[in-house]
Design a protein around this nucleic acid. Structure first.
Length: 262
DNA sequence: ATGCCGAAGTTACTTCGA
């Protein structure tokens, strides 16, 4: 028996969120954390502060946008940056995926492109990224090693994952094209680990900073843990730590926490 | 109370996010 806690969290700047991250690591005691939106270069990742908290870090960041990392206190090996045949945006291959083996599990930390607007070039880029992801995860999904692709997918899988779908008419995050692309990732052999409800029936993971969206629970479920059968079979609990969305200096996303008994 | 947007690069404004 190996009890593990794995989490994913879009922290919206590692530098701005470092104190909250360190506090959360201490109270939540995750073994593995997938982070997104570091908003800093590799060289600026505070690996010493994270090491002092007990975590090894694998990070890929280029600057003020994007950036992904995996923190682990159960070892970290076989680190791989990016996806096989990952599409570029403009002439840059953006830091949106990193994969590593941490103890008995292999995890991928993902920051799927936003899409911006269905008429924007960022939208076909988003779909192309998801296509590359579906191909990339296939071997890990079919393997015996517990594997999960966790992160900010920037897609609401169903209308029930939106606080009010009428407020999102034909916009990114809810289109059929995006949901079909997400379904293709799942069809590669991964299942959505759906978090249990806490205060509200819908386990949202994101609330915009504006318009009192968090107090009014105008949220989206866009941060997902997609697990292969070996990983999914080990899940004992999953929830969104919405307390981390409260107070001064919060990210606009809350951590998604998954407990395992391997 | 969970409270009316925030981060970062650059320096008063812009880009991006979902």
């Amino acid at each position: 028996m190996w009890l593990m806690r794995v989490a994913t969290w879009n922290i919206n700047s590692l530098k701005a969120r470092l104190d909250r991250l360190l506090g959360w690591l201490e109270t939540a005691e995750p073994d593995v954390v997938c982070l997104q939106e570091l908003k800093c270069a590799d060289a600026d990742v505070p690996i010493d502060a994270l090491a002092a908290a007990g975590y090894e870090t694998a990070a890929w960041g280029l600057g003020r946008w994007n950036g992904v990392a995996i923190l682990s206190r159960v070892g970290i090996a076989d680190i791989r940056r990016g996806l096989v045949d990952q599409p570029a945006f403009g002439d840059e291959t953006e830091p949106r995926a990193i994969t590593a083996t941490c103890g008995p599990v292999r995890v991928q930390s993902l920051y799927i492109p936003n899409g911006r607007d269905v008429a924007d070039p960022h939208f076909p880029y988003k779909l192309a990224f998801l296509k590359a992801l579906a191909d990339d995860v296939r071997a890990n999904a079919a393997g015996d090693l517990p594997f999960a692709a966790l992160g900010d997918y920037n897609i609401c899988p169903t209308d029930d994952d939106v606080w009010d779908v009428d407020e999102w008419p034909g916009t990114t995050h809810v289109t059929k094209d995006e949901r079909d692309a997400l379904d293709a990732v799942k069809a590669a052999g991964l299942a959505d680990v759906y978090p249990r409800a806490l205060k509200h029936p819908q386990p949202f993971t994101f609330w915009d900073y504006r318009n009192l969206d968090f107090p009014k629970n105008r949220g989206l479920r866009i941060d997902l843990a997609l697990a292969n059968p070996a990983f999914a079979a080990a899940v004992t609990d999953a929830y969104v730590d919405r307390n981390e969305r409260k107070g001064k200096g919060a990210s606009d996303h809350a951590p998604l926490v998954v407990d395992l008994d391997l």
